[in-house]
Design a protein around this nucleic acid. Structure first.
Length: 376
DNA sequence: AATTCGGGGTC
DNA sequence: GACCCAGAATT
């Protein structure tokens, strides 16, 4: 008897911690308080000006792992150039990637483009309107499907992302690592139990807005919180210790070299291959920084890969940047071609200075391109 | 269950 | 520097 009771208590940490919260709190009054707050503090955002599923979809893809402030201008430009799903579907991928340049996670742009073609072809232009249909689109996972279905189609679908993870963890007083799947499951369950049958779109946006503006990562503003009375963390004074999250990765410092090789008005560029970082984007020829004499070693590397006979100058530009789990120190060299022709089906290609503006580059590639006059 | 995939904001 | 951001797909 005592034994089974003990087991029951330890399993409270799992699914039933959710039920414990709902036992202690009225979800109707929680929803009311939240929506009342949201109607006052709701921020204007370009994708909130309509409920056009296409625009909601584009915004949700852009917002994956990307802050609202960063997305706003990208969204405006993207919708200006690709105002409908049909226009996106018939665009070429390079122009889509060009609009995405600087946002990062470029797979999102390629999948968005692929999904637009799917919608036009398989759904005959009728936008997928349910979570289950939306999940068939590449780049659309559980969060994004729930967000689109609820915001654009008023489906009662739950969401879970950065803001709501933090909010829910504090509301329940969750002290477990929110990155492990067991905790994710608890958080999804919480979202499922909380989402209303009607008005889920507004409700979900209100949750995220509260997480973003009030239940902030650092410095949560509990005095301004409309649902403070439902917050276990606040009642225990542990709101600053929650959420607990294991580190995502450790940084590794690496050094690279890039080369701006000129031939007349053209510059040697390389199309990043599908298996590489920046797939589909253009980059300057780039290598791990060679040991020994960088100029002579780089000259040999480029000659081997491109087939060109060339002459390199000294270092002209040094950039530091971080990408994924790497801190990169990138040194850039200028150079001229003496003779030779490009190898066939190497990813290299001569690009005129003017055309570089139209190509999608990585953020560092664009920095090099902008200071290209320093190499001539 | 881990890793990959960017880049900028912020303290 | 270190962590976060309206995550998804792959290994």
């Amino acid at each position: 008897m005592k034994k089974s009771r003990k087991i029951a208590i330890s399993t409270v940490n799992d699914e039933q911690i959710v039920e414990a919260w709902f036992d202690q709190n009225s979800k109707q009054s929680f929803r009311q308080s939240l929506l009342k707050w949201f109607r006052v503090h709701r921020r204007e955002m370009p994708w909130r000006e309509s409920r056009d599923p296409y625009r909601v979809w584009v915004s949700e893809i852009m917002l994956q792992q990307t802050q609202v402030a960063t997305v706003i201008d990208y969204f405006r430009r993207f919708i200006r150039q690709f105002p409908t799903v049909q226009r996106l579907a018939t665009a070429d991928e390079q122009s889509v990637l060009r609009q995405w340049e600087g946002l990062g996670y470029y797979r999102r742009a390629r999948q968005l483009h692929a999904a637009a073609k799917m919608i036009v072809a398989e759904f005959e232009g009728t936008f997928p309107a349910t979570v289950d249909e939306l999940l068939r689109l590449p780049g659309v996972g559980r969060y994004t499907a729930g967000a689109i279905a609820s915001i654009a189609f008023d489906e009662s679908a739950p969401i879970l992302e950065g803001n709501t993870v933090r909010l829910f963890a504090r509301l329940m007083g969750l002290t477990e690592d929110v990155r492990v799947s067991k905790t994710q499951k608890i958080l999804w369950r919480f979202s499922e139990r909380l989402v209303p049958a009607k008005g889920a779109g507004e409700f979900n946006q209100a949750l995220m807005e509260l997480g973003s503006l009030v239940c902030r990562d650092r410095d949560p503003n509990c005095r301004a919180c409309p649902v403070a009375r439902s917050c276990v963390a606040l009642s225990l004074g542990t709101q600053r210790e929650i959420p607990v999250a294991s580190p995502k990765f450790e940084y590794e410092s690496i050094r690279e070299a890039a080369v701006v090789l000129r031939r007349g008005k053209n510059v040697l560029m390389r199309l990043c291959q599908p298996s590489e970082r920046w797939a589909g984007l253009w980059d300057f020829p780039r290598y791990p920084f060679p040991h020994g004499d960088p100029v002579s070693n780089l000259t040999r590397l480029i000659k081997k890969d491109s087939g060109l006979d060339l002459e390199l100058d000294e270092e002209r530009l040094s950039l530091r940047h971080a990408v994924t789990r790497f801190r990169i120190e990138l040194k850039c060299y200028g150079g001229r071609v003496r003779s030779g022709r490009l190898k066939r089906n190497s990813a290299f290609q001569w690009v005129s200075l003017h055309d570089i503006d139209e190509l999608p580059l990585s953020a560092t590639g664009r920095k090099i391109a902008r200071s290209i006059s320093a190499f001539f």
